[in-house]
Design a protein around this nucleic acid. Sequence first.
DNA 1: AAAATAGAGGACGGAATTGTTTCTTAGTCT
DNA 2: AGACTAAGAAACAATTCCGTCCTCTATTTT
Lengths: 208, 208
Amino acid sequence: MSTLPASPTPPRRTAADGATSRRRGVELTQAIYRATLEELAATSFEELSFEKIAPKAGTGKSVLYRRWSTTAELVLAALKDDEAGLGRPLMPDTGTLRGDLLVLLTRFARILEEPRGRALRPLLTQRPRHPELFEQVMTQVIAPHRAVLLERMRVAVERGQAGPERATERTAAIGPRLVVAESIDHGTVSDAEVQAIVDEVLLPLLNR
Amino acid sequence: MSTLPASPTPPRRTAADGATSRRRGVELTQAIYRATLEELAATSFEELSFEKIAPKAGTGKSVLYRRWSTTAELVLAALKDDEAGLGRPLMPDTGTLRGDLLVLLTRFARILEEPRGRALRPLLTQRPRHPELFEQVMTQVIAPHRAVLLERMRVAVERGQAGPERATERTAAIGPRLVVAESIDHGTVSDAEVQAIVDEVLLPLLNR
DNA sequence: AAAATAGAGGACGGAATTGTTTCTTAGTCT
DNA sequence: AGACTAAGAAACAATTCCGTCCTCTATTTT
């Protein structure tokens, strides 16, 4: 009854022909990161355990204990990873504020559909329970991405595409917040919804 | 170490002089509702159990099992309760759209600071894990409040205080969403923040 | 006043998890 | 080829948690 469907990641790795293989180094670490974020996305940080992650990554618990001593450490490492996690943000430059906003928010919306994006949810909404982890995720993972959005708004101000003094952290937060809210309510965020947020909410707000 | 600070609700009821009293009926039920929502607000629905609620309400587990058979039942009852939960929404009528929005959103912001408001968070953000409960909370608890906001917007349209065809469920969702987001990020939502949401985001959006 | 009801609290057995350890062997290095 | 490192899997003990039952007694009902 409580048995979950088999994890997306094959529980056991097999080589091309079916002979059993054994992953090492980066390959193994990536599999563990993915399993961690999947599990976190599906449950919560409280329920996260090496016990559940190991089989989902197709490995043994000892492999995890050898590399990280707590689930918080593992989660942070997974989120910071460029491949499995969120890594470094890309700076768009479409020439217009509208274009930059669409690129950034659409990209954000897509990531929220993946496990690595959903993994953020339990962390952010359960903030008071893990202040240290929350703080680290905030400064090491979220902040760089926020900075990019604010930066594009500042550039827009310089280009005269947005009213002066409108490029603040507060206004920069509105877009991502609405996208997250839509994601939570509908499970997905359509391109049309992103457009509506940009055209009907953000641009009117930022143009003076 | 894992012992939580004593619950706000006294674990044991004592009469005026210190003689031990024993609650019954409504009084007892209310205490259980409050304990339930407090516990839910502090943790998550997954971690909720009669075992934890009973001592927090200053009663025994058998009392709970006698009245509800599952935690989902109990949670829904608590949220629907007029006193302990959210109950029926109040319809404001200040004469202006701005006034109505300020009243509704400010009231919402205050409720989100209380346990009964925070109790909603784990339910809404963990939606896929309890579809039935989520559905019931949505239709029986949230929907009536949403309806009030939309209704005030419709009235504003009739009065010419808002552009036609602007009073949609989508636009009605923006205010509450931004309030929730601010609440999650900052733990509290100041009156100034509510004002900013109304004046800088909602009114520009709704006035045509 | 006596009987009946239901609250408070704890005991109990069982099921489910968890972190750690141990063991065998695949894959790597010299 | 032989030695070595680390992966994968399982055994282990300890803990936690759950639902039921039992006892005692405060409060209500007759």
